[in-house]
Design a protein around this nucleic acid. Structure first.
Lengths: 134, 134
DNA sequence: GAAACACGTAACATTTACTGTTGCGTGTTT
DNA sequence: AAACACGCAACAGTAAATGTTACGTGTTTC
């Protein structure tokens, strides 16, 4: 797989699950569809579980299922669960020699945060259930 | 520096230049302010030059300058010039065994492209000259 | 024309993040 | 007890970005 494939894998899996939310899917099944490894699947879906989007069960008939209905999960939920960020927060100890430099640095960071928030707002407008739709 | 610092470096440099657009700055100066290496600066600013945002001159009094006024450069110009993308386009040969899988894959990609376009639209609303402002 | 200067670029090492893989433990169902 | 499936640690492999050095090219200055 390529870089930054976690969001892609997560959305693919969730929208696939949205077709039949009652069905339980194993990591191996999902990995087969996504062309990757079961452990990788568990790593990514584990984050979604921590965020309350999925549940997992051990044992004979275990596997993964949606913790909410697919029309109650937005792309923002997924994005934030994966802790992806547009740019590194660059908290480089802020030891700017000049105060003007420091102020500028603060402003750039502020602008980027505003943009990031706009992105999250946009992601919150799309539901998992809408991916299949059209 | 940290990962994904190109956008941060570019915005920092451009907004710094916006204070006095007539002044020429060397890679070494910029690298000093940004806490990095002159060659790294040239690599990043080189992309901005290709996109028509900056000009560079060799020689004794050479260096970098804005190619446009700071109120005629948007964050989208910078973002696109650096060729950064929200997610990898994941063109993994599309050899999905099942046609349903293929359709789903296409839909996920489409949704991500729409989100990316929304991000660019948002970035286009902010000018370099606005970074210092407030 | 020689020297100083600054970018352009190649080449390589280093760093970092992610992915791929194996192995083993834990819990559940049959 | 056996089969199953997740949880997790550990490690190798891979890919991208960054840091660094070296050298070429073009421009200005003397």
């Amino acid at each position: 797989m390529k870089r930054n494939s976690r969001l892609s894998l997560a959305l693919h899996t969730l929208s696939h699950m949205a077709v039949d939310p009652s069905k339980t899917r194993t990591s191996a099944d999902i990995a087969g569809h996504a062309g990757t490894n079961p452990v990788v699947v568990r790593r990514v879906l584990g984050r979604l579980r921590e965020a309350g989007l999925l549940t997992s069960e051990k044992g004979h008939a275990g596997g993964w299922r949606l913790a909410r209905l697919p029309d109650q999960i937005t792309l923002a939920d997924v994005y934030l669960a994966l802790d992806e960020r547009l740019v590194a927060s660059d908290e480089s100890s802020d030891a700017a020699a000049c105060s003007v430099e420091h102020a500028l640095h603060t402003r750039v960071s502020g602008v980027l945060k505003e943009v990031e928030q706009s992105l999250v707002d946009r992601l919150a407008e799309t539901l998992i259930s809408e991916i299949r739709g059209a």
